[in-house]
């Protein structure tokens, strides 16, 4: 299982993501700089990590989504390579158009940093097959712009096609219909605001993120 983590100026969860991928797969991921125009050959998984790429200038994820590496990432997504975008990575994926909607300022304007209780709404994806939909999970969030917005037509379509994967049990940021994570229509691109890579070690307060990496890397 070959994986890569894309690194942007201002990424700050790239190393946590690399540790999570290596812990579960036993293989070091490639760390790929945003300015590169090619991805390493034979990738199965590409992670777009959290952070504050380009200082959130213009809009969160806007500048990163126009960087050199994004073109090959979009091509890889079209070929069916699995793409995981977390937090800023989710914002970047919506800005590229790989995922619908947009992530706006939290409705109460506060930066929210806490463990969030989530429902796994769809365990029938390559990212969530290791979860049980009846058991809520606790995964940390840390964001200012996590308020998922899409118009009703898009929201209805997402729900109708089972593309909503995670929902907040308490709506901590104003997201439409409590949405915390979605997949694309083909099911190979997941964007989520909570940080599963921060929940893979009991010493860090919980391991509810492990099943995501185990599903993804199996």
């Amino acid at each position: 299982m070959q994986s890569a983590v894309i690194v942007f100026p201002g990424s700050n969860c790239d190393r946590d993501m690399a540790v999570a991928l290596e812990t579960v797969s036993g293989k070091k991921p490639h760390m790929v700089w945003h300015g590169d125009s090619e991805l390493p050959a034979g990738l199965d998984v590409i992670a777009v990590p959290g952070g504050f790429s380009y200082g959130d200038y213009l809009r969160s994820g806007a500048m990163a989504s126009r960087s050199n590496i994004i073109k090959p990432v979009i091509e890889a997504a079209t070929r069916g390579v699995k793409i995981l975008g977390v937090c800023n990575g989710f914002q970047i994926l919506t800005e590229t158009g790989l995922l619908p909607g947009a992530l706006m300022r939290n409705s109460n304007i506060h930066f929210v940093c806490k463990d969030a209780a989530l429902d796994v709404v769809n365990s029938n994806t390559i990212f969530t097959s290791g979860y049980d939909e009846k058991t809520p999970v606790s995964i940390p969030v840390a964001h200012h712009d996590g308020n998922f917005f899409a118009d009703d037509e898009v929201l209805d379509r997402l729900e109708g096609q089972n593309q909503v994967v995670f929902r907040y049990r308490d709506n901590i940021n104003g997201s439409s219909r409590n949405i915390a994570g979605i997949v694309n229509e083909a099911g190979n691109v997941l964007g989520m605001m909570p940080h599963p890579e921060r929940a893979i070690d009991e010493k860090h307060g919980g391991t509810d993120g492990l099943a995501l990496f185990e599903s993804l890397l199996s």
């Binding site: 213009l58 809009r59 806007a62 126009r66 919506t94 800005e95 947009a102 706006m104 917005f149 899409a150």
Partner: peptide, 8 residues
């Protein structure tokens, strides 16, 4: 392409 996100 860049300056506005026409979704919102």
């Amino acid at each position: 392409k860049l300056l506005a996100n026409t979704v919102i």
